[in-house]
Write a protein that binds this DNA or RNA. Structure first.
Lengths: 188, 188, 188, 188
DNA sequence: GATGAATGAGCATTCATTCAT
DNA sequence: AATGAATGAATGCTCATTCAT
């Protein structure tokens, strides 16, 4: 691949990251191309469909999250590792509309293409989860799929609220609610 | 109103309920009309804009939920009333993509028209919440806006999962996580 | 024809007169029906197409103008009769958008259907004109068609101006310009 | 700008000129595109709204007329310059339905966007007019707005007549009537 | 390879006309 | 005969995708 081609690919990915983060999957591709400073044709040379671009962006983000989960897998305190990762993931993903869209499953086609990467993240998170459950920090009746769904839901909730001035919502409190709900309850 | 008009209005509302429930606000009006077995002009006669139709559908659903919340307001046990309503709301609203869209605030314009009804629901829910908080059943650091957002998020999560066969998620467990997170924690 | 049918026909014509006068041929028929207090179906019972209704309205107006021209045909002073009629016609027709549309020939189909009545008016006006020309009051190089066109143009001009606050125009002056232009010029 | 783009822009403008000239602002954009041999999207690329296209066409025509008026402003004989311009304008604009629409003020929105250019023309014409009035060639009781309205009306009249074979009208005579009406009358 | 112009299917909405009630 | 609901073709505009330059 020529140097300028590689550079354009980078520019496009960066622009797409920003655009998708701000507006979700709804952004016109022309705007992505404009942000990247290239023509839409160039975009299509690198990414044959809009979904391919979207997937590329989300793929990268999912892998970053998966990597982070992997790092946390060896931490001394399984419970702290798990809840630390949850907090990290919420913090990182909340402002990325595309992740919210992707994790929430907007459009069934996305799922198939992203399934592998999403599965990878789910596996890593599942490992963290299982370890935390074995250590007694997290409720035992929870599958990795449930957890991913709950995270996706929280992200969605945070997205919606950031636009609605009439109903103020507190990211800290909402995350705390989720974490408390995930925690094992001593009395039970 | 003439019999055929009422019938078609019913058909349209029903078709719109189904279509919006399945696909959210994104469904083409022509498809709603097609599902109802009428022409697009007929749809227009009954609902002058797409938003009017969407609002009619969501309005009804929001009012049902608000009514249910009002009923619960006088129950003997404030905590049980609150958690019972949360479970009811999740059960009812989960398969309705439109409610998820509306509660999640997809598109600022919707909000203005539905704000009144959504606000009504929030108020009723807020009353249940406050009472449950005073009774010590629900954590005190939670606003009505937070709660609505969390519910909206959970609904979104459930919607997304219902389409994703690869990542099974359990509505019961997820609702339990939310409810446990909402509950006051004795030890704190 | 039943009494109520005749009455509805009257109501419709009256409503159409008003609506067409105010908005020209562009008014939706539903609005005409609404103004008349009847259903659109009733409108169609009496007038099989929109154009038929339009023609009925314009027909009546043209006949009134023709009658007025006929009255003026015997006046003592041919010049005064002619210019008096011109002023009358401008005064009457200026606020009737439909007449402006019809005389201006908006839509070729109209012309065919209204041709007979418009021709009748043209004939009467032509008689006034010829008499005034013979008396030396009006320039001789003017045909009845020219005159009708000029009148239609003046009406159009007055219509446009009444909407444009940036370019004030004076109906009196404009009519005077036309009349002076029509008058025979002594020096020639 | 690329060669093909410029070519298509030219084709579109030309097609729009013809279509607007023949049918006024009422032509469907799809027909303009069809005439130009391009898709509707291409039209949109060059002219983002229908009004933008209309304005582009009319703008050009108005500017040509304004330029012509400016040229005439320094002529030796103010009266001849004025009447010459009137004749020129009638000749040029008569077959252009769009100019008639624009000058006649069809639709208030047009006015805002074209107001500047139309105002420019009115100013230039007003200059010619004032000079001719000072020289005693043109009646003093006439504003620039009146003149523009009269011109617009004459154009409208000529348009209408060109479609009506039953009522022959003579452009020369009609223009002469207007000009004579505009001229100062010695005897008054 | 890059560019950006062209494409055309698709959408919400309007309104003259028809037809069941 | 009246009613007003239903029809559906048409319009301006958008945007993912293709293709000439």
């Amino acid at each position: 691949m020529r140097a300028d081609a590689r550079r354009n690919r980078e520019l496009l990915l960066r622009a797409a990251q920003d655009a998708f983060a701000e507006e979700g999957i709804g952004v016109p591709l022309d705007e992505v191309a404009r942000r990247a400073g290239v023509g839409p044709g160039t975009l299509y040379r690198h990414f044959p469909t809009k979904e391919a671009l979207f997937e590329a962006v989300v793929h990268e983000r999912l892998r970053e999250l998966a990597a982070r989960a992997r790092e946390a897998a060896d931490a001394a305190d399984p419970g702290a590792a798990f809840f630390g990762f949850v907090a990290h993931m919420v913090r990182e993903a909340a402002p990325k509309q595309d992740l919210v869209d992707a994790l929430g499953g907007a459009g069934a086609e996305l799922q198939t293409a992203l399934a592998a990467t999403a599965g990878e993240l789910r596996e890593e998170v599942g490992r963290l989860l299982a370890r935390a459950q074995r250590s007694g920090a997290v409720r035992p009746d929870l599958g990795a799929g449930d957890l991913m769904a709950l995270l996706s839901g929280l992200l969605h909730a945070l997205r919606g609220r950031s636009r609605d001035p009439a109903a103020p919502a507190d990211q800290e409190v909402m995350t705390a609610v989720l974490c408390d709900g995930l925690a094992a309850r001593p009395g039970r």
